[in-house]
């Protein structure tokens, strides 16, 4: 059975769904952040497979820019998590529910 574009579509869809499941299931802020990275990578994989399908380099540059934005996001997000750990000595997201009260 030859590999078609649908295979890549479903593989990246599966990785994206696993990322969503992890985001909803876990309470550790760092693990949730890692699941977001996993979702970004699933989208990157899909874009590269589209680039291969159509023989066009634009999608690969989009992947490049997604990586740039993800790197910036990781720097700021980890700084936020470190600050949160300094304030409450935990990375449990259930502590951050003060807007509820």
């Amino acid at each position: 059975m030859p590999v078609t574009s649908l295979h890549y579509l479903f593989l990246s869809l599966l990785l994206f769904s696993i990322g969503i499941m992890g985001t909803l299931m876990r309470r550790n802020a760092i693990i949730i952040f890692m699941c977001i990275e996993l979702m970004l990578n699933a989208v990157n994989l899909l874009l590269v497979s589209f680039s291969k399908m159509y023989g066009d380099a634009d999608a690969q540059l989009f992947v490049f820019f997604i990586m740039v934005v993800a790197a910036a996001e990781v720097a700021v997000g980890l700084a936020v998590i470190v600050m949160m750990y300094r304030k409450v000595h935990s990375v449990d997201i259930n502590i951050l529910n003060r807007l509820k009260h």
């Binding site: 030859p2 696993i18 499941m21």
Partner: peptide, 23 residues
């Protein structure tokens, strides 16, 4: 798990008949 799986199944069902281009 259910909400992630439902998302997977819905997009799978919607795109199952999309045009396949051999890589």
């Amino acid at each position: 798990v259910i909400s992630g799986g439902v998302l997977f199944l819905i997009i799978l069902a919607a795109l199952k008949t999309a045009a396949t281009i051999e890589v």
